[in-house]
Design a protein around this nucleic acid. Structure first.
Lengths: 144, 144
DNA sequence: CTCATTCCTATGGACATAATATGATTATAA
DNA sequence: TTATAATCATATTATGTCCATAGGAATGAG
């Protein structure tokens, strides 16, 4: 019942990019230093975010990353799902089709659907901008 | 972000006991046959439930299990936590003390606390009795 | 070109999950 | 008492995921 480190780190990376968003590209090396995460591990985490179009990147010297949209336009759920896949508490809720043979009569299915809903409603109710405000109110030097 | 099979099976076992609660002891063999779970695996799952005082057991011939309380007196969260441990989405929320060195300034901590709250509020808002009603309304022969 | 940076892929250790298996212990029925 | 049927306790094994480390290829600016 845990979110993996990849999901949690993705959130920290996106938040770091949001807090340090000056329009300039931010090299991953800087984020790695601030967040105390190894560069090589961060590359694996930001790659899916880039492929999903959540960040813009430029290779080569003086390259780096920057947010593709405004912080208010990302929900935390959006970000977590890129790294975690669907945030479902039970495999029977995954996929379009009901593959579980018990679906038609399973008495616990409504419970799992309800849990799924409260989780996803919540993570989609918080935006990256909310976290930015939280970060600014908590620490003056923006070192997250 | 998944509940393990042990947690899900625990719920099905408790529900089976609730639906077939006639005051008599129910041998695990019967539940295993109805739920299509191997007896040996079920033994591992019901053992913590028994130690937690959720079910009463009697050994020997014509022994078995029975609920220790009324179905309305168990929340689904109670049952899941016996098998899963605390239902927290992030390790930093576990334990009494704040062991995470980032806790004092971490800008994502309030988000995780909020997620933790909606999850636990929900799982504790549904009781075993609610599932019994769901089961009876879904299938006439009570074979869950 | 040269250097910094993104991008791609592979590898491995640690740990958890999901079973399966074997047998010991206990209590009831006959 | 004896056989039976159930709980209880460990151990083993396969499988998979998580968390990271690593090496190198491609790219772009100066």
């Amino acid at each position: 019942m845990k979110v993996s480190t990849k999901g949690r780190y993705a959130l920290r990376i996106m938040l770091d990019l949001a807090v340090h968003d000056s329009g300039e590209l931010v090299p991953l090396k800087e984020i790695a230093a601030r967040q105390n995460i190894t560069l090589k591990y961060m590359e694996q985490i930001i790659s899916p975010l880039s492929k999903a179009g959540f960040v813009q990147s430029l290779r080569g010297s003086s390259g780096g990353y920057r947010l593709a949209r405004k912080p208010a336009e990302y929900t935390v759920g959006d970000i977590l799902r890129v790294l975690e896949g669907p945030l479902v508490p039970n495999a029977c809720l995954e996929g379009e089709e009901n593959t579980c043979p018990r679906a038609d009569f399973c008495p616990t299915l409504p419970f799992w659907k309800g849990l799924n809903k409260v989780i996803n409603d919540y993570v989609d109710s918080v935006t990256l901008e909310d976290l930015v405000e939280e970060a600014l109110s908590r620490q003056s030097d923006y070192v997250i």
